[in-house]
């Protein structure tokens, strides 16, 4: 409602008045601007000042020559990247890992939040919550270490248990068919529990009267969850989904880098690992920046599209 009135009034304002309105607004809301100031300054200094770095994507950047002294090469790095035979493989892997994440990981916190919300016993709920939040605090380095500890064929405890049950060992870590599942599983273990926090918070904000009303109408627990809880957290889901879509090409670098090996690299190599090898390890700053820029632009487009769609479905969107 508010937004609509604001939009309407701003449309109505005559162009000649616009400047004055701006000035008077600034004056009227000066404390509001003061509140925002530290944040705005932060974005200017730490996010916009370093953005000149994006320019080196169009250069043959040499640190010794600096930004001004380096040679401009236009789109050379982009063309080299798109025409490399790695590109389709990287693109497929990045997209598929993201897709696995979106389809299998993204709904997990929502489901878990709904389950936790239905749990009756407060202590039981608390214990489960405490356990499932915990892995979030572990870094990928640690999680990779644990994964090797559990899943390796030589000494992994999971395989030893399988063998003791008379089954065959499974090559979890070196099977290219299992790799995307492995990554998704790790993400679930680490973050599915933690992700529930934001949903639980918005579920807690639901008016209890709504549940009462649903009960009056004879709705069971499933129907209550479906008709009351889910709609209440819909806008949070949509916002998270939009932001997630913008990150489609951002698959967790550290995770993949730590889990990658020669037997699975055909399905594991993604833009970020490629950039790391070429940019950071080989010092090809310009080339890797170009790849990063390509990723950013795709991400920006995706967010804009997703935001459009969300708005068409009556959601507020991100901006």
């Amino acid at each position: 409602m508010q937004i609509m009135t604001a939009q309407k009034s701003s449309k109505l304002a005559a162009a000649s008045l616009k400047r004055r309105t701006a000035q008077s607004n600034l004056k009227r809301d000066k404390y509001l601007y003061l509140l925002a100031l530290p944040g705005i300054l932060f974005f200017l200094v730490f996010k916009y000042v370093p953005m000149w770095g994006v320019l080196i994507a169009f250069q043959d950047y040499s640190p010794y020559d600096g930004l001004l002294g380096s040679q401009w090469v236009g789109f050379t790095h982009f063309i080299a990247f798109f025409s490399s035979e790695q590109f389709p493989i990287l693109f497929r892997n990045t997209l598929m890992i993201s897709l696995y994440n979106l389809v299998f990981f993204f709904p997990m916190p929502i489901l878990l939040a709904l389950l936790l919300n239905e749990g009756r016993n407060v202590l039981f709920k608390k214990v489960i919550q405490s356990i499932v939040y915990l892995p979030h605090f572990l870094s990928w380095v640690i999680i990779a270490g644990i994964s090797y500890l559990l899943l390796s064929q030589t000494s992994g405890i999971v395989n030893q248990v399988l063998v003791s049950f008379g089954m065959h060992k499974i090559d979890f870590l070196t099977n290219s068919h299992l790799f995307w599942w492995l990554l998704t599983g790790q993400s679930m273990w680490k973050d599915a529990g933690w992700g529930t926090i934001i949903f639980l918070a918005s579920i807690a904000g639901v008016d209890p009267a709504l549940y009462e009303a649903a009960k009056m109408d004879g709705a069971g627990r499933m129907r209550q969850a479906w008709h009351v809880t889910l709609p209440a957290i819909r806008s949070v889901i949509v916002i998270l989904l939009i932001l997630r879509l913008g990150q489609v090409l951002e698959v967790g670098f550290e995770q993949i880098y730590l889990m990658m090996n020669g037997a699975v690299s055909q399905v594991a190599d993604v833009f970020d690992t490629y950039v790391y090898r070429n940019g950071i390890q080989n010092g090809q700053f310009s080339f890797s920046t170009a790849v990063g820029l390509f990723k950013s632009i795709v991400g920006l487009l995706l967010v804009i599209i997703a935001n459009r769609i969300a708005k068409q479905f009556g959601e507020e969107g991100v901006y």
Binding site: T154, K169, T174, N261, G262
Partner: peptide, 12 residues
């Protein structure tokens, strides 16, 4: 040779 040598780190 170990079945999962591909994931081995030298320390392992």
């Amino acid at each position: 040779i170990p079945k999962d040598f591909a994931v081995f780190k030298p320390t392992q």
